[in-house]
Nucleic acid binder design. Structure first.
Length: 649
RNA sequence: GGGCGAGUAGCUCAGCACGGAUAGAGCAUCAGCCUUCUAAGCUGAGGGUCAAGGGUUCAAAUCCCUUCCCGCCCGCCA
């Protein structure tokens, strides 16, 4: 017999037995909702209900007596996966599984379903867009941004495994002023070919250009304030200028050649600021030269991003340019539609969206879980000069996404919560209620460096590539130390998946709501509770299977009678449950936790009992089947968070 | 001022949606285990007023209220 979710079968059986006995022995009460919880340990069975505590009061009985009474009245003839039901702990009813049958069911199911074990398919498959990463194409992806693709890719993987049709989208924000700044610098340099990894190359141009331009702008502001005798503005300008000049000194030292070149060329322009604004407007208008230029720089940067993400097996199905929504009528259509709603008002020539009014008119506060005194600030849609803002364009983009999907999950930092809420309310306002309800902001907290703030304008950040390089390097040292006999080729290949796995795991493992303070120690952990630990465990199981001279057999499961063996079977049987929870509640970190706890249990077992040298042929066969199942499940789970499950390491 | 997220062992974090049996891991510290299948491993020890106070309940780290503390957001930036 095979089951997609062995534990669920047991749960259903317990549920039926319990329901029957209550309706039979307590016909006078209406059947309460039955809650069966996993027990803290094997001694209490596998599932328990605390129902008697609640019923006892109603029935004016003591919980233990009630539990006894119910247990005594249970019809045992229906037991299949249930071994026994006992009352315990002053009122609990504990259900014990029949391990002979349950081990057989679980291990055979894993063997049979193999890489599909755990992938319990949803009854309601949907088309889902997961938008993630979406780093602006201005400089290399840094460690503070890398948490996003790690979470987004894990989400996409689990949703797909659940049977949804998932599409991974990258939104390229190329319309902002920043894109024009980098393109301007790139143009001044004569559109050079990158001499290094292209995103790194573009990043340097961006940092230096934006610094020079900023100093220029501030000098003008200072002179103006001086002329007008505006003391406040003068102080402000001077203060900012001081800061930028210190940044300039830093950059000049770091990239002397580039800096000199850009200073010379940019200062040759009468008004660099105006050049950039002109470029920006030309781009929004879709003028050919501007289009070619900005797309060219952006593409360079994106090539670099693709290379970086490729290293950690993250890929995308669609690259969506923000500019495409501006050049086509999509953004203007959204504006036209919004204007027909009563939620738009004009303030000094600026179009605003009254988000709060939407919550009132459509009575959404309660529905969206917003506090009644949470007054949502209005959103500016169109500037006085007629140009649109980021969130305005995002509305058009979101509507477009819903033309291709039933559900949209945006993996975006939680500092954008308000903007994401306003976006959702705009959908409601435009009568896109279904879309609004299926728009999910998957928020995560920031990654910061200890001691100082990561600053892209100072070019002061740790790139994701550096982190990956360092991880692989340290993994290599580790392999060389632990397995000096391996060939160089093998060492490098192991170092690669260990290092990259460690980083992926570390960024997915923590609750997304918690901030992560980046330390090398944290990300490059090779010990318990890390990808390398789980990978090592998988390799260890693989090693046993490789050395086995007999086949795993699925006949003598009653021999798996050690407590640890039973616990292992339970952990394996619980994989589908955990997977469903991780998917339905969008908690990829559960997967990482699960791999660790399975690895933990297996390693304890490994140290306590021999497999290949067990007492009897039958026991060897049964334990081999257990090891095989563990190997399969570890592999399936690791795959969901994009970590390689190696045969050897 | 308002909103959102967080506060659990010296440090990093699970557990909280759905209340339940002695609050769990790892790091660090200390003591052990490689002539049996991979020691990136295992065993054991110490370490907790679950931020504080109140409330609901047979039962609260978990639910409700108040307070404190930290981060983020409240732009004609993205």
């Amino acid at each position: 017999m095979i089951a997609q979710n062995p534990f669920e079968l047991f749960r259903q059986e317990c549920q039926t037995v319990l329901t029957d006995v209550i309706t039979k022995t307590l016909p006078e009460i209406t059947l309460p909702p039955i809650s069966l919880k996993k027990t803290p340990n094997l001694d209490y069975g596998q599932l328990a209900t605390s129902l008697c505590f609640e019923l006892a009061k109603k029935l004016n009985q003591k919980p233990p007596a009630l539990a006894e009474h119910l247990v005594a009245s249970i019809d045992k003839s229906k037991f299949n996966l249930i071994d026994k039901v006992v009352s315990a702990g002053g009122g609990y009813i504990n259900f014990h599984v029949n391990f002979t049958k349950f081990s057989a069911l679980t291990l055979q199911s894993i063997k049979e379903l193999n890489n599909q074990y755990g992938s319990v398919k949803t009854d309601t498959p949907q088309k889902i867009i997961v938008e993630h990463t979406s780093v602006n194409p201005l400089h290399s992806i840094h460690i503070g941004q890398a948490r996003n693709p790690m979470l987004g890719d894990a989400l996409a993987r689990i949703l797909q495994y659940r049977g949804h049709q998932v599409s991974r989208h990258y939104y390229i924000d190329d319309v902002g002023r920043q894109s024009s700044v980098v393109a301007y610098g790139y143009l001044k340099l004569g559109r050079p070919k990158p001499t290094e990894k292209p995103d790194l190359f573009v990043g340097k141009i961006y940092t230096v250009t934006s610094c020079i331009v900023e100093i220029n702008r501030l000098k003008q502001a200072r002179d103006k304030a001086n002329a007008l005798h505006n003391a406040d503005d003068l102080v402000k300008a001077n203060k900012e200028l001081d800061e930028w000049i210190s940044i300039a000194a830093e950059l000049k030292e770091k990239y002397p050649v580039l800096f000199e070149m850009l200073v010379t060329k940019i200062n040759a322009d009468e008004n660099p600021e105006e050049e950039i604004n002109r470029l920006n407007r030309a781009y929004e208008d879709g003028q050919q030269a501007a289009k070619e230029l900005i797309r060219e720089v952006s593409d360079l940067c994106l090539d670099g991003f693709r290379a970086t993400m490729n290293r950690v097996s993250v890929t995308y199905d669609s690259w969506d340019w923000e500019s495409d929504f501006v050049w086509t009528p999509q953004v203007s259509e959204v504006m036209a539609k919004l204007k027909t709603t009563p939620f738009i008002f004009n303030e000094k020539g600026v179009l605003q969206f009254n988000a709060d009014q939407v919550t009132q008119v459509l009575d959404l506060k309660d529905k969206l879980g917003l506090s009644p005194n949470n007054e949502i600030p209005p959103l500016t849609l169109v500037r006085a000069d007629g140009t649109t803002l980021y969130t305005t364009r995002d509305i058009a983009y979101t509507i477009w996404k819903f033309q291709h999907a039933d559900k949209v999950i945006n993996v975006i930092g939680m500092e954008q919560s308000l903007a994401q809420l306003q976006l959702k309310l705009a959908l409601y306002a435009m009568n896109y209620g279904r879309e609004a309800e299926n728009l999910i902001h998957f928020a995560y907290n920031l990654v910061t460096l200890p001691g100082y703030k990561m600053s892209s304008r100072r070019g002061r950040y740790i790139t994701f590539d550096e982190v990956l390089d360092e991880a692989v390097k340290r993994a290599y040292e580790e392999v060389s130390k632990r397995s000096p006999m391996l060939s160089e080729e093998e060492k490098h290949s192991i170092a690669d998946f260990v290092g990259l796995g460690a980083v992926r795991y570390a960024l997915v493992d923590v609750d997304p709501g918690k901030p992560v303070i980046f330390t090398w120690e944290r990300v490059l952990n090779f010990e318990t509770n890390s990808a390398p630990y789980v990978q090592y465990t998988h390799a260890r199981a693989s090693s046993i299977l490789r050395k086995a001279t007999i086949e795993p057999q699925t006949t003598s499961f009653e021999l798996l009678s050690e407590r640890l063996e039973k616990e292992l079977v339970l952990v394996l049987a619980g994989f589908p449950d955990m997977f469903i929870e991780a998917t339905e509640y969008l908690k990829p970190n559960l997967i990482a936790d699960y791999t660790n706890s399975l690895a933990d249990k297996f390693n304890t077992f490994y140290n306590a009992y021999p497999v290949l040298k067990a007492d009897s042929q039958y026991l060897i066969e049964a334990r081999l089947a257990l090891v095989k199942a563990i190997q399969t499940v570890l592999k399936n789970a690791l795959n969901l968070i994009g970590v390689v499950a190696p045969e050897k390491m």
